[in-house]
Amino acid sequence: MPFNPMHDEHLPVTSLHSGDGHEVLTDVYCLPVQIVNVYFIGTPDRPDNWVLVDAGMPGTESEIMAAAHARFGPSARPRAIVLTHGHFDHVGAVVELARHWDVPVYVHPREMPFVTGQSAYPEPDPSVGGGMVARLSRWFPNKPVDLGDHVRELPEDGSVPELPDWEWIHTPGHTRGHISLFRQVDRAMVVGDAFVTVQQESLYKVFTQQRELSGPPRYFTEDWTAAKASVQRLAERAPSVAMTGHGMAMGGPELREGLRDLIERFDELATPD
């Protein structure tokens, strides 16, 4: 097997600072880019066989490419880019990276209008509470990017192109076309913003990376009923480790108990008043 599944109890607790990349699993490398994580799926011994998941903040293409070169070599080039969704902090460098590497970018069909320049997302809601980031969200961009000929729809059968061991799961709520990735063999999961492990609305908690399982970022979440159902859908897969768009990876009893508590108290813990 090209990876060594990490036992739940051995999941490392690691600090999370921008540019401080680290392995979560042998074949999944997390790169924090300012306030968000991107993931490189693939092993360094196969530099021609890896996939980038999400594309960070605007203007971070050089940082992402430098991390790719450090992990996979100077000619590093992914086979594809997969987007969990199209919010600005997950697609910030995607146009530049797709053009530079000349690779396809895969998204859920319902996310296509937001990555082909057709539609803007609903404006962020700064009234949702939770802290300074929520209040500052009124200035977060909601305009679409345009990937042109690089963009592709994910296959209807749930398979992920270039990642044969993984499947995609439709997890709407935060956005209508949000997806998560799941690998059955070790129950590893990349969840984007379906849920996160830091209270993203709080500037203090974002800076300190105080780890706590939380619902999707409130200021950009469109449908709270769907968001709760998506968390339930992911919990039913019994993930061994969840790699989130914001915050540190979480696994083992902490993840299982956190998901159970989040589902039972979703309206209290996640849904804005």
Score class of each variant (00 low, 15 high):
1 M>Y: 07
2 P>W: 13
3 F>I: 12
5 P>D: 08
9 E>D: 14
10 H>S: 11
11 L>Y: 07
25 L>E: 15
27 D>H: 14
31 L>W: 10
35 I>K: 12
38 V>G: 08
39 Y>E: 11
43 T>Q: 12
44 P>I: 09
45 D>V: 11
48 D>A: 14
53 V>G: 04
53 V>F: 04
58 P>L: 10
59 G>A: 12
59 G>D: 10
61 E>D: 15
61 E>Q: 15
62 S>V: 12
64 I>S: 08
67 A>L: 05
71 R>S: 06
71 R>L: 15
72 F>H: 04
74 P>V: 12
75 S>A: 15
75 S>D: 14
77 R>E: 08
79 R>T: 09
83 L>N: 08
86 G>I: 02
87 H>P: 00
93 A>F: 05
94 V>P: 05
94 V>K: 04
97 L>Y: 09
98 A>Y: 02
99 R>P: 00
99 R>G: 09
99 R>V: 13
101 W>G: 02
102 D>W: 01
103 V>T: 08
105 V>D: 03
106 Y>S: 04
106 Y>L: 05
107 V>F: 04
109 P>F: 05
114 F>I: 06
114 F>G: 01
116 T>N: 13
117 G>P: 04
118 Q>M: 13
122 P>D: 11
124 P>T: 10
124 P>W: 01
127 S>H: 14
128 V>M: 08
128 V>G: 02
132 M>C: 00
133 V>A: 12
134 A>M: 07
137 S>I: 10
137 S>C: 06
138 R>I: 15
139 W>P: 00
141 P>N: 07
141 P>I: 06
144 P>M: 09
148 G>T: 05
149 D>T: 13
151 V>K: 10
159 S>G: 10
161 P>A: 03
161 P>H: 03
162 E>H: 15
165 D>W: 05
165 D>N: 12
165 D>T: 06
166 W>H: 01
167 E>P: 00
170 H>V: 00
171 T>Q: 07
174 H>W: 00
176 R>C: 01
177 G>P: 09
179 I>A: 02
180 S>D: 02
181 L>V: 05
182 F>S: 01
182 F>C: 03
182 F>N: 01
189 M>T: 09
190 V>W: 00
190 V>N: 01
198 V>K: 02
199 Q>N: 12
200 Q>Y: 13
205 K>V: 00
206 V>A: 11
210 Q>D: 14
215 G>T: 08
217 P>Q: 06
220 F>S: 15
221 T>I: 10
237 R>V: 04
238 A>R: 15
238 A>N: 14
239 P>K: 03
240 S>N: 15
240 S>K: 07
242 A>I: 03
244 T>V: 15
244 T>L: 12
245 G>M: 08
247 G>V: 03
248 M>H: 13
248 M>K: 13
249 A>S: 11
249 A>F: 00
252 G>R: 02
253 P>F: 07
253 P>R: 13
254 E>P: 02
254 E>G: 08
254 E>Y: 08
256 R>Y: 01
257 E>R: 13
259 L>D: 03
261 D>T: 14
267 D>F: 09
268 E>M: 10
268 E>N: 05
270 A>R: 04
270 A>L: 05
271 T>N: 03
271 T>G: 03
271 T>V: 15
272 P>H: 07
273 D>I: 06
